[in-house]
Design a protein around this nucleic acid. Sequence first.
DNA 1: TATGTATTCAACCGATTGGTTATCAACTGA
DNA 2: TCAGTTGATAACCAATCGGTTGAATACATA
Lengths: 115, 115
Amino acid sequence: MPSDRLSSTLFALSDPTRRGILARLAIGDATVTELAEPYEMSLAAVSKHLKVLETAGLISRGREAQWRPCRLEAAPLQDVFEWLESYERFWDRSLDSLADYLKVMQNRGPGNKDD
Amino acid sequence: MPSDRLSSTLFALSDPTRRGILARLAIGDATVTELAEPYEMSLAAVSKHLKVLETAGLISRGREAQWRPCRLEAAPLQDVFEWLESYERFWDRSLDSLADYLKVMQNRGPGNKDD
DNA sequence: TATGTATTCAACCGATTGGTTATCAACTGA
DNA sequence: TCAGTTGATAACCAATCGGTTGAATACATA
């Protein structure tokens, strides 16, 4: 795991299994066995993925008897979001919103066929 | 490098050197030597980082004599952005933008002192 | 107490990472 | 043609990754 926070967050997110786990946790809290259910890998492998997510601060874990319920923690995601925002000007904004699109169409005037 | 596009993008972004290279390219196109200048590692190491960024589609490269100018390609960043947006509801929106803050202030009307 | 269930830990494995140095290739210009 | 510059490639290395299996831990219940 890389040293700085943003790096470890992005690294944790770079695995499809871990993103799948986060997607499941977006529905609601879940135990390790519940999280592991969609995957063919061993429970120990999922446990490792959870540790990566936990050290990245992307999940937190409770204690209920022998269960360790996992919860999504989105703060690191916001860091990524904010980092990304400084690059927002580099991608095509015209597809971002219908409003932008309509603005373009209005400026072109009627009768224009070359779309 | 992971198989799917989003994974390889996030993985490429998970290294601070590679993010630094992108930040430099956000200023403008640059050659490999220019990109390598801030780092103490060898040119070959930077070349490897560039290959990771290129296979992730985050940069493109031209040809000018013996130079291979690099250019930022932000399309994969937009994919990450869109993936992140589905998690936006999990973090606190109230600090997201000054616009939101001002909207709240306007709705409150003048003369309100309890900030 | 013994048993079953949930989860982690430890050791191991092959593949990959991020770095090195040395070499090769492409191009410029004297 | 030959030297200099730019960059990529190859071979190598220690460390890490993502997975495995097997044992250990923690708890509930009979």
